[in-house]
Amino acid sequence: MDFQVYDVAIVPIIVALVEFCKRIGVGPRLLPLISLAFGIAAGMIYIAPHDYPQAIFVGVVMGLAACGLWSGTKNLAQN
């Protein structure tokens, strides 16, 4: 697994894309799935384009991290 430190920078990009989807009117129930989809897409396109199991695993991790970062930031802003 050749996961570089700067690959973690994809997580805030996923957060930004999910926020964009939210602002264009996507329902809040779909946002976690969109986060996972963006994570898996980034894994397959950027992280491991020739190793699909690794790409899916890393993509799910990035999508869940982005979803948690987005949710945590939202909860912090509301309090």
Results as ranks from 00 to 15, higher is better:
Asp2Val: 03
Phe3Lys: 07
Gln4Ser: 11
Val5Glu: 01
Val5Ile: 10
Tyr6Cys: 01
Asp7Lys: 02
Asp7Cys: 09
Val8Leu: 15
Ala9Gln: 05
Ala9Asp: 03
Ile10Met: 06
Val11His: 02
Pro12Trp: 05
Pro12Leu: 08
Ile13Ala: 12
Ile14Phe: 01
Val15His: 07
Val15Met: 13
Ala16Lys: 03
Ala16Phe: 13
Ala16Gln: 05
Ala16Tyr: 10
Leu17Asp: 02
Glu19Thr: 11
Glu19Val: 03
Phe20Tyr: 10
Phe20Cys: 06
Phe20Met: 10
Cys21Ser: 09
Cys21Glu: 02
Cys21Lys: 04
Cys21Ile: 01
Cys21Arg: 04
Lys22Met: 05
Arg23Pro: 01
Gly25Glu: 04
Gly25Pro: 08
Gly25Met: 03
Gly25Asn: 04
Gly25Asp: 03
Val26Trp: 03
Gly27Tyr: 02
Gly27Cys: 03
Gly27Arg: 12
Gly27Asn: 11
Pro28Arg: 08
Pro28Val: 10
Pro28His: 13
Pro28Phe: 04
Pro28Tyr: 06
Arg29Asp: 06
Arg29Cys: 01
Leu30Trp: 09
Leu30Phe: 07
Leu30Gly: 04
Leu31Thr: 13
Leu31Ser: 13
Leu31Asn: 13
Pro32Arg: 09
Leu33Asp: 03
Ser35Cys: 08
Ser35Pro: 12
Leu36Met: 15
Ala37Ser: 15
Ala37Phe: 12
Phe38Asp: 09
Gly39Trp: 13
Ile40Ser: 08
Ile40Pro: 08
Ala41Lys: 05
Ala42Glu: 07
Ala42Trp: 13
Gly43Tyr: 05
Gly43Asp: 04
Met44Val: 14
Met44Trp: 13
Tyr46Phe: 15
Tyr46Ala: 15
Tyr46Asp: 14
Ile47Leu: 15
Ile47Gln: 12
Ala48Asn: 11
Pro49Glu: 11
Pro49Lys: 11
His50Asn: 15
His50Glu: 15
His50Tyr: 14
Asp51Phe: 12
Asp51Tyr: 10
Asp51Pro: 07
Tyr52Asp: 13
Tyr52Gly: 07
Tyr52Met: 15
Pro53Tyr: 03
Pro53Gln: 08
Gln54Gly: 00
Ile56Asp: 01
Ile56Val: 15
Phe57Ser: 12
Val58Gly: 00
Gly59Asp: 02
Val60Phe: 04
Val61Thr: 06
Val61His: 00
Val61Met: 10
Val61Lys: 03
Met62Thr: 00
Met62Lys: 03
Gly63Arg: 01
Gly63Ala: 01
Leu64Asp: 00
Leu64Tyr: 00
Ala65Leu: 09
Ala66Tyr: 06
Ala66Ser: 11
Ala66Pro: 05
Cys67Ile: 00
Cys67Gln: 02
Gly68Ala: 09
Leu69Asn: 00
Trp70Ala: 07
Ser71Tyr: 10
Ser71Thr: 14
Ser71Glu: 10
Gly72Met: 05
Gly72Phe: 06
Gly72Glu: 02
Gly72Pro: 06
Gly72Val: 04
Thr73Ile: 05
Thr73Asp: 04
Thr73Leu: 14
Lys74Met: 06
Lys74Arg: 09
Lys74Ser: 08
Lys74Ile: 02
Asn75Thr: 07
Asn75Trp: 13
Asn75Lys: 14
Leu76Met: 14
Leu76Phe: 14
Leu76Asn: 07
Ala77Phe: 13
Gln78Asn: 09
Asn79Ser: 11
Asn79Met: 06
